[in-house]
Design a binder for these strands. Structure first.
Lengths: 252, 252
DNA sequence: ATACGACTTTGAGGCCACTCAATGACGTCA
DNA sequence: TGACGTCATTGAGTGGCCTCAAAGTCGTAT
């Protein structure tokens, strides 16, 4: 929009030097093949909070990897309100759901200052022709997304407010952990409002549950800073059998 | 289980002779290439109502296409109850969500007598190596599934009982229509219980909504036979902007 | 430092869908 | 054909979460 931004963090880290490569697309490629992926990746300036990566209805050209920061995707309900469909953390890939309609079915917006790697889909497809493993990885990504969405459907149709929020916190914790951050103590990128929107709850309900969890020693929360105090009980609320839950318990 | 069943319908229709080929996997292939797909497809005996195609946790070996009948997929909630995740009608493909874990994340059960085409995944993958278009089609299928699941999440988190059931009926009608059946009048494969389970509603609520819809002239329902009397209003309840809705309106 | 807006918390009250319970309809099998 | 089990319907009562409202807190920009 204005002149080139003054970025402290180098904006052009190659995949081979990126600390996230073992979680991101490159994990499907050998060291020498990574460079080919690297060449098609576009790394733009950081997005500021509130800026959009793409809008619902934009033509589907690329998939994106989050390098730092956080992205939310959302769509409009029939009444024109926003319905958040996903939150994306560093190393996670978004945009794939646009593939079969040639337009993105959701909008993607930065929730804080965010760095993004853009992978033009057409070139990704030709690369997939060369590297079957990359192709399989893409399909696994989508398959995983389907499973996660089904977990989410289960949450929305069967869980009460306490269970929803416990599940959400445990899930976030586990994702932070995989990325080398603390799973006990972290900062939420989203507001209570956004959390409620995503979880199918009113803001007030989210707030009340947080208060109650804190009163009962499950968590300690100040604003967006969260500390998980009783992972075991939180996991149990979330419905212990999930892998996520076990990961956190083992981390404590 | 017993001797070979006496099937009225020929159990070994080749893809090229199957009336569903234009909706199913073959749509990605040219006429001569279809035969290659055809050779890897296994067509077993029909499943009787209640029989399982696979169980949650079974090793992921194949994807399946429904040829006739209907399949539901479900998983167990933490309390051990069944949570239905999808219904599949003829020409629809299921099983793809097992891809990234090597086990099926759900169980699949016949809701009525059902004929199935089984496509061993390993062979489907090698075929994909030969035919980029087949590969793209598979990815589009998954992408579509993701979009549908997100519609479902929206339904579960934002819609009330009336809207959920209207959406469900409109969606079914549109799927029947695509398959050349009437979209005005059809037979539900699922019980009220299963419908409620899928839609996140109690059976009693489903029943009450059906009664009310009937009283208001939106539908006429006797048991599992459904007639859509006022597609426009039903679409509006479902949240008019969906493509499904428009299709039905244009059909009336 | 201060003022403003955005976000969060807390309370009061109401509604929608759930649960429990009982009756009615359907389909199936002996 | 009758008896049984399953499924569907209807009613009464309850509770969890929503809505509305107001006060409190935080962050930010001037």
């Amino acid at each position: 929009m204005t002149s080139k931004p003054n970025v402290r963090q180098p904006s052009h880290v190659a995949c081979r030097d990126c600390s996230l490569s073992s979680l991101c697309l490159p994990l499907a490629l050998s060291l020498q093949d990574i460079d080919q992926l690297d060449r098609i990746i576009k790394r733009g300036r950081p997005l500021k909070k509130g800026e959009h990566l793409f809008l619902e209805g934009d033509s589907f050209d690329s998939v994106f990897a989050v390098r730092s920061g956080a992205i939310k995707t959302y769509t409009a309900t029939n009444e024109g309100e926003e319905q958040i469909t996903s939150f994306y953390l560093p190393s996670e890939i978004l945009g794939l759901s646009g593939m079969d309609t040639d337009v993105y079915p959701v909008s993607a917006q930065a929730m804080e200052t965010t760095m993004i790697c853009e992978i033009p889909f057409e070139q990704l497809e030709s690369l997939s022709d060369q590297f079957p493993e990359l192709r399989r990885h893409l399909m696994r990504l989508m398959s995983k997304k389907i499973r996660e969405d089904q977990q989410m459907m289960m949450l929305l149709s069967k869980k009460n407010a306490d269970e929803r929020i416990a599940t959400f916190l445990i899930n976030l914790a586990s994702r932070f952990r995989r990325r080398g951050f603390s799973s006990q103590s972290f900062r939420l990128a989203m507001s209570r409002n956004e959390m409620g929107n995503y979880l199918g709850l009113a803001v007030e309900t989210v707030s009340r549950v947080f208060t109650r969890f804190q009163k009962n020693g499950l968590i300690y929360a100040v604003g967006k800073e969260i500390e998980i105090r009783d992972p075991a009980q939180l996991c149990q609320l979330a419905g212990g059998k999930t892998v996520d839950a076990e990961q956190i318990i083992s981390a404590s």
